[in-house]
Amino acid sequence: MVILTNFDLKTTFLKRMTFQQLPEKRQEQLMAFNRLLTIMDELREQCPWDKKQTIESLRHLTIEETYELSDAIIEGDLPEVKKEIGDIMLHLVFYSKIASETNTFDISDVLHGICEKLISRHPHIYGDVKVENEEQVKQNWEALKLKEGNKSVLGGVPKSLPALVKAMRIQEKARGAGFDWEEKSQVWEKVEEEMQEFKTEFNVIDNQAIDLEKAEGEFGDLLFSLVNYARFININVETALERTNKKFIKRFQFLEEKAKESGKSLTDMSLAEMDVYWEEAKRN
Rank of each mutant, 00 (worst) to 15 (best):
G76P: 10
I114Q: 10
T62E: 11
I55W: 08
V153S: 09
K145C: 05
L146C: 04
D109E: 14
E101P: 08
K138R: 07
T66R: 03
L92T: 10
E56C: 04
K52G: 06
Q139N: 12
T62C: 11
H124S: 06
H91R: 05
I74L: 15
D106E: 09
E84M: 04
S152P: 04
L92H: 07
T54N: 02
S152N: 12
H112M: 13
E65V: 00
S70K: 09
V157F: 04
I119D: 06
D87W: 02
K83Q: 10
E116K: 14
T102I: 12
V93A: 15
Q139A: 15
E134W: 00
A72N: 07
Y95R: 08
E101W: 08
E101I: 06
P123S: 13
L144Y: 06
A99T: 07
R121P: 04
D50S: 14
T54V: 05
E132V: 00
A99Y: 10
H91F: 11
V131M: 00
E134F: 01
I55Y: 10
E80Q: 14
K83R: 14
H122N: 15
Y126V: 02
V129F: 05
I98W: 12
E68Q: 14
G149W: 10
D71C: 02
V131H: 01
L111F: 14
I55N: 12
I114T: 14
Y95P: 04
E142Y: 03
D106Y: 11
V81E: 03
S108D: 13
P158R: 07
K82E: 15
R121L: 15
D128K: 03
V129K: 08
K97G: 05
D50A: 13
D77P: 01
I114D: 10
I98R: 01
E64V: 03
M89R: 05
E148T: 01
L61C: 09
L154M: 04
D109K: 02
K138Q: 10
K145Q: 08
I98H: 07
E64D: 14
A99H: 14
W141D: 15
N150F: 15
I63G: 06
G86K: 03
A72E: 07
N150R: 13
E64H: 01
I73G: 04
P158Y: 06
Y67W: 13
K130L: 08
G149Q: 09
V153Q: 03
K130S: 04
K130C: 02
K117W: 13
I119Q: 14
V157I: 02
V93K: 03
I88Q: 09
T62D: 07
L92S: 07
G149T: 10
I73R: 07
E134Y: 00
A143N: 10
K151S: 09
Y67K: 13
S100N: 06
S108L: 14
V110R: 02
T62K: 05
K117P: 05
E134L: 00
L90Y: 15
H60A: 09
R121W: 09
K145M: 13
Y95V: 10
K130R: 02
D87S: 06
E134S: 00
L78M: 10
E68T: 10
D77L: 04
A72M: 03
L78T: 09
R59L: 14
E135L: 05
P79E: 04
V153G: 04
L144E: 13
V129I: 05
S120G: 01
E68W: 11
I125R: 01
I85Y: 02
S57R: 06
